[in-house]
């Protein structure tokens, strides 16, 4: 049975079809929410909210967009609502590296920079948490979930150009955070 058939059955209230949809996508939705919100309880809330919305609005899904894109949009919006309620304060990100006149240190080939290194893992977790929602969602959808620029723009309802701008700033911000750590630890070593 194709996904279109399953969705059709689910729209008619078929219990098994609904279970199949939830079973197929719940892990991806849970992980998406966890990556955006960085908190397991919040991710569980978003998981439940997302599928409750799906059950309520499945009859409005007209099949013009991909079901996965539609579902991700619901989950991303639910995650964003939760993130906004926390009222965290974030700073705007620049378009280029700080101090571009300096010679940059190349740590791209250093094998010690991996997440088995607890300090590196901590830096990554903290740095992603410091990204404001508009940068974090783009970075998670494009670079972590590996979605295309096009799908990311559809899910977030922003232009592809805007996706690229946010993605560039998020990538450069995270790069600088790792650079700061690397250069600090290098000096200390």
């Amino acid at each position: 049975m194709t996904e279109t058939d399953i969705i059709k059955k689910a729209k008619n209230g078929d219990h098994d079809a609904l279970t199949e949809l939830v079973s197929s996508y719940s892990e991806r939705i849970y992980n998406l929410a966890l990556r955006i919100l960085r908190n397991r309880e919040d991710a569980e809330d978003v998981l439940q909210e997302t599928f409750l919305t799906v059950l309520q609005k499945l009859d409005t899904f007209d099949g013009r967009s991909n079901f996965f894109t539609w579902l991700y949009r619901i989950a991303t919006n639910a995650s964003l609502m939760k993130l906004r309620k926390k009222k965290l304060v974030f700073t705007e990100l620049p378009d280029s590296p700080r101090h571009p006149e300096e010679k940059f240190v190349d740590w791209s080939q250093d094998p010690s920079l991996n997440i088995q290194n607890k300090e590196v893992k901590k830096i990554i977790d903290e740095s992603i948490s410091q990204l404001s929602e508009i940068y974090r969602t783009v970075f998670i959808l494009r670079d972590i979930e590996n979605l295309s620029i096009k799908d990311t723009s559809k899910i977030l309802n922003i232009t592809e150009e805007n996706v690229k701008i946010r993605l560039r700033r998020a990538r450069l911000f995270l790069r600088e955070k790792i650079s700061d750590y690397y250069e600090g630890s290098e000096v200390a070593a």
């Binding site: 190349d106 893992k121 977790d125 450069l172």
Partner: peptide, 16 residues
């Protein structure tokens, strides 16, 4: 260096 370290950044974040 900027490009290579951005690539490495994305790789480490994906692993994380």
């Amino acid at each position: 260096v900027v490009l290579d370290t951005v690539r490495k950044t994305v790789t480490i974040c994906r692993e994380n």
